[in-house]
Structures are given as C-alpha cells and as structure tokens.
Design a protein around this nucleic acid. Structure first.
Length: 649
RNA sequence: GGGCCCGUAGCUCAGCCAGGAUAGAGCGCCGGCCUCCUAAGCCGGUGGUCCGGGGUUCAAAUCCCCGCGGGCCCGCCA
C-alpha cells in the first residue's frame, strides 16, 4: 500500500518532522511530531510548531528558519510557511491535499487506515483472564475491551497478533467453588446462565465458610475487643447470607446444611486443591474441569456477544500437569538467586537487581521499589500463582513464536508482574522479560455500589449490556415503529453493546474509571451511538447516490470553498497518522478522541452543504469523495473498536 | 512505614511522558433550529484558585521539591 505511506508522509506531523530534522541536527523526528499543533483560529494558518525551542543553542537561527521555510514550500501541499513570535506556521494547500487523500482512498478503498508498520512483530495479547468463579463484571469488561481493541489496532497496523485467555483454575477460589458445587450436588438450572448460577454457589459457599471461621474466632476470643470484632464480623456475614438466601433459598439451605456437617471445610478445600494439582483423585479432577468449563460457557457467551472472543484458551492446570512449571523451578535452582524464605523455595530478586542494575532500565522498574523475595514453592511443595505465571509467560512466547507479549492485567498486580519479569531475567530469559508488557488498567467503580465476588455483590457485564440494549430499544421503537421486531432488536443490540465498549476504551487505562450506566447509555455526543449515527448519515448519502464515486470528475477547487468543508478534509487526511500513533503507543483513547472530533466536524458540515442536491458535477464529485472517505474512516474505526457499523439507526 | 497510580468546569474526561500562542470536549443548565442526504443532529449562551505551597525557566496544567485528598500494592492469596 504505497499510497497509504505517501499520505502518511504528507500529514503536517511528518512533513514538519522530516524537514526540520534535516536542518537541525540532533533533533529527533518524534519530538517534532509531538510538538506539531493546530493553530488557534485567531492566528491564522493550519498547523504550527514552537520552533525556537528546537533552535536552542543553534547558530544562525534566522538562516535556519528561512532554509526550513523554503524547504517546506517545496511541498505542493504546503501553500505557505511563516515565522511569527517563536512559531513556525504552515498553511495547507487543501486542493493538493485532497488530491493525495482521494487518490489514496480510491486506491485502497476499504483498507484505508494506518500504513503497515515497517517492523511487523508477532504479538500475543492476553486479556480478560477472569477467575472462573463468578460471571464477568464491569471491571473485566474494561480489560476485555482494552485487550480486544489493542489486538485489532495492532493487526491493522500490520502486526501478527494472537489473543489468549488464561484460565485460572488452580487458585483457592476455584477450589472453594468446586467444594460448594460438590456439596450442592446439583447442576445449574436450565433457564440460568451457568456462570451466574456458579457465582451464587461460590458466594454462598464462601460466606458460609467465613461464618464458620468467624464463629471459631468468637469462641477463642481472649479480650473484649477480639470478642466485639468477631461479633461485628458475624453480624455482617449474617446480613450477607440473608441476601444470598433470598436469591435461591433451596440451593442455600442445601449448601448450609452440607457445609455445617463438615467439621473443617478449610481442610477439605486444601485437600481438593492438592488432589487437583497432583491429579490424585479422578472425581475431584472431573469436578474441577466440569465447574470451570460451565463457567467458561457463560464467559464465552458474553464475550462473543461483545465480539471480543479470544483465540486461545490456556488452562493453568495444564501448565502444572506438564513439566513446564517444574522446569521453571529447575532453572531457578541453577541460579545464584535461589534462597529460602522460612524453608520455602524462593528467588532473591533484590540480589538479582544488585548484580544486574541495568535491569531497572531494561525492564522499566522503579528505582526505589523494594522487591520482596518471590516464593516459588510452598513448604508442602505445591506451586504458587506467580510461579505458574512465569511458566505461562514462557508458553505464550513459545506457542506463538512471539516477539512481544502484552498482558492486560489490573494495575493492582503491578508488583507481581514485575516479579514475574525479574524471575524470567533471573533464569536467563532477559529477552522475554524485556518484551513482556504489563498493560495496566485501573479499577472500574460504580457509584454507590461496592463490589465483592465472594459476597456475590457485583454488577455483571450481562446486566450492563441488557440495560444498555433496553435503553436503546426504547429509542429505536420510537423512531422506527415500522420495522420488524427482529430489525429493531438488532439495531438496539448494536447500539447498546457499542455504547458499553466505547465508554470503556475512551478513558486512558491509567485512570480509575467511574462507570455510570446512565451516562454510558446516554446516547449523545461523544458516545458510540453518536459515531454510529454519523456513519449512518454518511452511508445513506452514498446509498442515495447509488453509483460509483466519480473520481475522474472531481473539481479540486471545491476543497477550499468553505471553511467547514476544508476543516473536515484536513482532519480526514490525518487519519493514517493518528491511527498509527494510537496503535504504536497502545492508546485506543487517542483513536476514540479523533473519531469523535471527526464525527463532530462532519455533523457540523452535513446540514449546510448538501451533497445529493449539488448541481455542479465537479463539486458534487468532490463532496461524494469526501463523504466516502469519512464513511470509510468511521467504518474502519468502529471495526477497530469492535462496534457494529449500522446502516440505519 | 515504604512504593505505584490519580487529582483540570457542578459531573465525566482530553491535554502532562515529549514545557511554548487567550487551558479544550461531552454531560448538565438557559435559549433557538425539522416543506431540505437520519433532530441519537445543529446553532448560541452558561461555567475553571488546572488540589495547595515553594523551586527551575524567557515561558509551568505539563519538569523538580514539600505537603493535602482518593485508590491500589507491599502474603507459603490469586
């Protein structure tokens, strides 16, 4: 796609970067690109850059500036370049830019987007990876949408990408659920989504066990304070249990009775964990797999619905059962960093950093972060989550022959992720360590609600989606009473799910996100429906035109006739650059901000500059080409965000 | 106690990494616009001690230091 590259190099960012770095040695192209900004209206011109900043300490500034200006003017898309008050400003020749843009769009059609990267990589994106003990909730949804969108962006940029889901089936949490499942000795009811039902089993079981523990503490209380604390705890648990019972009294009572008869549930749970890790008891293994598989059924249904289904599913237990985890431990034993923490095998990562301080830089580890030793194996010989995670990281590299692994994982796991990378470096896998990226995102909170999986308190993604669709459905019913039930529902689904996805990737991952369902389904500007709506408008102009775009008839002087038309054109031409930047920097929010602005400019232009009614064939051809370009950008961006592009809404 | 992240309009957020022109959007609120390609739209108005205090600089929302507020992490949990 030569044309995409050419258009990319014609954007103001690249033009200024290339030209300026030619004249000022030692200045990086990227730095110049970052500095390019749109000029505030009142100053005139299109793009500018604070050039004086780059000329610090340079001799003959005036000469340099003049040379740069002369050079810039050689480009046909630059009409003028001037120096004012510390800034170098350029004015775009919109007709020439339009030629480059339309020639590109004409040539590449639906493929319009970023140019393919010069350095394609094989990249694994691991995302969602929720514990299979309850349904996916809104926090997992942020993970899922980020991961899925990153994968789509990277693919479009020319990388070879695979998505993976890590099935965390060896944790204590799953054992608690399996314990409860065996005690309940029933299957999920037909009319319930299995993950929802299992979430309830898990919450009831967990809370009942916590109650037993709290009662033990009460008996053992020595001081008044201990006694009071235990009483308070029991009160809270009783309240939680009452709520849980109301959801399914029959199931609750059955579990309560069965668990009461177990003198030591904790011990039983530890036992079944061992039975699973070492495959000691076929019935236990079967129960684990059955429960997890049921939960995954629910996950898949939800993920498919939001169009974010991962390609590969990796069982944590498979890692333990094959020799992969053992191999990691063996490799660790051969290093000088092995240590024992109260008898348990561990890695002294602080020592590693003392030996190889360059790892701070190489792995991006904060200098004054204290890294506790990483325990690899419990005293009883069983492995721990980080140990298996080390093996899993290696597996991700090997299974896909990957250059890079991106883990979309909550920011609260930052230390664990650093430990895993350091452990990889410790066992001689520095390359993998350096190419493992923790894509950290902050928590999602819902105003006025606290979330707790083990108490069964969470807002499921399924509920959120349903609410969004229901809200969209009201609107669709109002607008399109003539459509069939199926048609209206299909539109509502696309709008509702799109709204949820959009709201979850539009905020930078480092920010805690307050998810306000009313706002997510408030379908106005700066939402997915706004973009979808804009797409439908553009699409319908072309549908009405009902003929190929008359590329050969375009009158390029039409580009500069109107300010709003010109603004829209300039913005559209930046698409390949912005998309590439968003993909390279792993920042979907950049793309979201762009597409929102583009939709904005389009909607401002749309009502005042009619396309179909345009009498002049050359001008009409220009407008049609512009609409086709915008339509394509909207379509491709929506696809990247996993949001359906609807032809009508 | 130590570390990481966040703090910008009533609310939700861009901008901070890569310092530069009078700090931008959306929601909300007030007022307008459908014989015309979709009004989930458009136009106008309203709204800011950029958490506080110092420092660096010709120039600080942006960099540095000291605080304040919120979240998270520092397990033989995952």
């Amino acid at each position: 796609m030569k044309q995409l590259n050419q258009l990319y190099e014609t954007t103001p960012y690249r033009l200024l970067a290339k030209t300026i770095t030619r004249h000022i040695p030692g200045v990086e192209e990227k730095l110049v690109e970052y500095l390019v900004a749109e000029i505030p209206r009142r100053y005139g011109g299109d793009y500018g850059i604070p050039i004086m900043r780059l000329l610090r300490g340079v001799q003959d500034r005036e000469e340099k500036i003049n040379a740069i200006i002369n050079d810039l003017k050689q480009s046909p898309v630059i009409r003028d370049a001037v120096y004012t008050r510390g800034y170098l400003n350029i004015d775009i020749n919109e007709a020439e830019l339009a030629k480059t843009l339309f020639n590109t769009v004409k040539a590449v059609g639906e493929e319009f987007g970023p140019p393919k990267t010069a350095k394609p990589e094989r990249i694994v994106v691991e995302h969602t990876s929720a514990n299979p003990t309850h349904p996916l909730h809104i926090g997992h949804a942020r993970n899922m949408c980020l991961g899925d969108t990153l994968a789509r962006m990277l693919r479009k940029r020319g990388h070879i990408v695979q998505t993976r889901f890590y099935i965390n089936d060896m944790g204590r949490q799953v054992a608690v659920l399996v314990y409860g499942y065996m005690k309940a000795s029933t299957k999920p009811p037909e009319n319930t989504k299995p993950d929802h039902w299992l979430g309830l089993v898990y919450a009831i079981t967990h809370t009942l066990i916590d109650l037993q523990e709290a009662k033990k503490k009460l008996k053992q209380a020595r001081t008044h304070e201990e006694y009071q604390e235990a009483v308070n705890e029991i009160d809270k648990l009783m309240a939680a249990l009452a709520k849980l019972r109301s959801k399914d009294p029959q199931l609750f009572d059955k579990l309560a009775e069965a668990i009461q008869q177990d003198p030591d549930p904790e011990k039983t749970i530890s036992r079944i964990m061992q039975e699973y890790e070492y495959r000691l008891n076929p019935d236990t293994v079967k129960a684990f797999r059955e429960v997890v598989e049921l939960c995954l059924q629910g996950f898949r249904e939800t993920m498919k619905r939001v169009d974010a289904l991962p390609e590969e599913w990796d069982w944590e237990s498979d890692l333990a059962w094959t020799s992969m985890v053992e191999k990691v431990i063996k490799e660790a034993l051969r290093t000088p960093y092995i240590t024992y923490k109260e008898g348990a095998l561990a890695l002294d990562l602080q020592k590693l950093l003392r030996d190889k301080p360059y790892l701070y830089e190489k792995l991006g580890i904060p200098r004054n972060l204290e890294i506790p030793p990483l325990v690899l194996r419990r005293s009883d010989g069983t492995t721990l989550y980080p140990t298996r995670d080390i093996a899993y990281t290696i597996k991700k590299f090997q299974a896909f022959n990957a250059d890079k692994v991106i883990n979309v994982i909550a920011a609260e796991q930052r230390l664990e992720q650093i430990q895993v990378r350091l452990a990889l470096a410790a066992i001689g896998r520095e390359k993998e360590a350096a190419n493992t990226i923790h894509y950290a995102y902050e928590m999602v909170t819902i105003p006025g609600r606290s979330m707790s999986g083990r108490r069964g308190e969470y807002i499921t993604l399924d509920e959120v989606i349903e609410a969004a669709i229901a809200r969209a459905r009201q609107e669709v019913d109002k607008r399109y009473p003539e459509l069939t039930e199926e048609e209206r529902q299909a539109i509502a689904e696309g709008v509702g799910i799109g709204a949820v996805r959009y709201s979850l990737v539009s905020v930078s991952a480092t920010k805690p996100l307050t998810f306000n369902i009313d706002e997510a389904v408030n379908f106005e500007r700066n939402t997915a429906p706004y973009i979808q709506y804009t797409y439908a408008r553009a699409y319908n102009i072309l549908r009405k035109h009902n003929a190929p775009i008359p590329w050969e008839e375009i009158d390029y002087t039409a580009a500069g006739e109107r300010q709003d038309r010109r603004t829209l054109l300039l913005l559209a031409a930046n698409y390949p650059y912005i998309y590439a930047k968003a993909a390279d920097e792993l920042k979907p929010e950049i793309l979201v901000a762009y597409i929102n602005k583009l939709a904005d400019k389009f909607n401002k232009w749309y009502p005042t500059d009619h396309v179909i009614r345009e009498q002049d064939p050359g001008k009409k051809a220009f407008k049609l080409a512009l609409v086709y370009t915008i339509k394509t950008i909207l379509e491709n961006t929506l696809r990247t965000l996993g949001i359906p592009a609807l032809k009508r809404l």
